[in-house]
Design a protein around this nucleic acid. Structure first.
Lengths: 343, 343
DNA sequence: GGCGAAATTCAAACCGCTTTGGGTAATCTG
DNA sequence: CAGATTACCCAAAGCGGTTTGAATTTCGCC
């Protein structure tokens, strides 16, 4: 059943039927009702491909997921971010096109998306500190919103981000207030923008208290359980081990906890731990009382907001770039406590 | 730059240019070269929307991800499965359309995908034991491949699955051979087909050794870390606790390990653990020596295969349903050992 | 050299919808 | 009541490709 068939059945022109269904004013209410009823009766759904060609809009947004080529790691937060974004898209009748791209191929993919016209805009994931994609997307005039930020981009751009610096500054400050002076930072890879901001926050908190940072207490790793374990284990094996950890993800935290318990230490008593918690659906930080003290910010919510922002950017011809800085809450769990007395 | 522009520049008809670029034989090699060169020079990429309308193919496949409405859980294996599938699609020039759908809305979504024609086929995720989607997709003649299986479907269908029954039978058998008689099963939700098969395998192994199953040693949970922890903790707190665990995912395993260590037990010595390992990129089971003894099967590989199978199904008019049963390897890690003597 | 076949190329139809530019009948004006 | 609006509907022209059917060259061969 297509538009022509339906219009023939109704004894109307395709024009009128199309207008009736799309809510244009130049059609009699009575005929509109007839048309709508007939459409429902015959279960008419306009062909997406035709709409797209006729309107020149793709009615789709792209999420380009760069995959670490060396380790083939897919960032596990994508699942939840996309779940959030997907809600927004489907409400607006947009498709979500997912493109898994080996990092390095990205420029080509974006260019092709533009020239082939199969998306109206894109979400940029995992920005690096200086990220070529922002310049590129501006150049090819592809609407976009960044999940995260990049420093020193030439032009302004829209983004949704967590206040990573502030979150880690507060978290480190909290640990310092508890008396901790040796705080191990296990961060994500520090060419990623968020990781740099977190480290900055950590360093600021130390500086504020006049505590000198130590290279031996700072690690930057891919965020997997086993690497988290190894990093924590190594730090704990140092002659002068940390009394607290500040961790960049729940997954790292699980690994770190393993290292801690393996050493016979008790979290919250012998050693304090604060982790960032993206509030992933399958990785909840405890059911009632949080296990980990954490800086929490829902990545799903970030997805929802980024998606809404992108749709707005697409709708408005040349909008001013907007941004949303989400504050992470510092939630107190069972993994932090005063620095233990070492006699 | 569109086809008309390019053909004008070349002094050829759009017909010829289109044919030249699509490799049709009825065009002179010399002109083809000229056309290809000009296309590259002017960076001509045919408009996807137009191709789709003209050919009647969507050049896209849909992945409908049902989201547990109550808990909003997104199955974390999707990220890797889709990464695998995505590779295959992009090589074939297909788009991957991701649809996040509250479970319950699925039927509508599939029907609309069909009548609006924005996908050529779909991957069915997380089949239930008896799953309405298989009948539905047959009814609306939408090509599909199931990741997993469903029992007792009226018609045959294509699928890619892990031999879950066999994997868990082997794993349980292995534990039984080590002398374990009280093996706690912490399974996924048992309306999911894979979970039922795993339980069946577990029960078969027990039966084979004449060990009676105990309800108190079998749990069925959503696969999160905290629920895994709780289930394991509760089982260990029983008067006659299990000496081994058989677990349905690495994430559950992390929770179980927490419960085990909290109780002061040592994995591989006091208690044995085998888990299923989907070989997720961010959740590796140890770097050199696996931490957990595990039934391992790469979900990413499953994604690759399912995608390839779907593309073939789409290409061939009415193919016979095919299927691939992947065997999980039983890899021995540090988490299993003989049953401890309890004096 | 001429004729039929093969090799090339092209004009035009079509995919299924939106949208422009008229038309015609109904409704207002003055 | 004539003329101007307004309300409503339609034919036809896109959107940017693919594909059919036909026309034009070029060849092969007697």
């Amino acid at each position: 059943m297509n538009l022509k068939d339906l219009s023939r059945k109704l004894g109307l022109s395709p024009t009128t039927v199309s207008r009736a269904l799309n809510g244009y004013p130049e059609v009699n209410e009575a005929t509109r009702e007839k048309v709508v009823a007939a459409a429902k009766l015959h279960n008419y759904k306009p062909n997406t491909r035709a709409i797209r060609l006729a309107t020149g809009r793709a009615m789709a947004v792209g999420h380009v997921i760069p995959v670490e080529t060396r380790h083939e790691i897919v960032n596990p937060i994508f699942a939840d971010f996309i779940a959030g974004a997907g809600e927004t898209y489907s409400r607006a009748g947009y498709d979500l096109i997912l493109s898994i791209v080996p990092d390095g191929d990205e420029a080509r993919v974006y260019r092709e998306m533009k020239s082939r016209g199969n998306v109206d805009g894109v979400i940029v994931h995992s920005p690096r500190q200086v990220d070529f994609r922002i310049g590129l997307l501006h150049e090819i005039a592809m609407p976009f919103v960044v999940h995260g930020r990049a420093t020193g981009a030439a032009q302004a751009y829209s983004w949704v981000d967590v206040n990573n610096r502030r979150a880690f500054r507060r978290a480190a400050g909290f640990l310092l207030d508890l008396g901790h002076r040796r705080i191990g930072l296990i961060n994500g890879l520090e060419f990623m923008d968020f990781a740099i901001r977190r480290r900055t926050g950590y360093l600021e908190a130390l500086a504020e208290k006049g505590v000198a940072p130590e290279p031996g207490l700072m690690r930057s790793i891919e965020m997997t359980e086993s690497l988290g374990y190894e990093a924590a284990r190594d730090m704990l094996a140092q002659p002068n081990p940390p009394t607290a950890f500040l961790l960049s993800s729940m997954i790292i935290a699980l690994g770190a906890r393993r290292a801690i318990e393996e050493r016979g230490l008790v979290m919250g008593r012998d050693i304090s731990v604060i982790t960032h918690d993206d509030d992933l659906s399958y990785m909840k930080n405890g059911t009632d009382v949080p296990i980990f003290t954490a800086t929490r910010s829902s990545v799903r919510e970030a997805g929802r907001r980024a998606a809404a922002m992108l749709l707005e950017t697409i709708a408005t011809p040349s909008p001013l770039p907007t941004s949303q800085l989400l504050e992470a809450e510092l939630i107190i769990g069972q993994s932090t406590g005063p620095v233990p007395n070492r006699s």
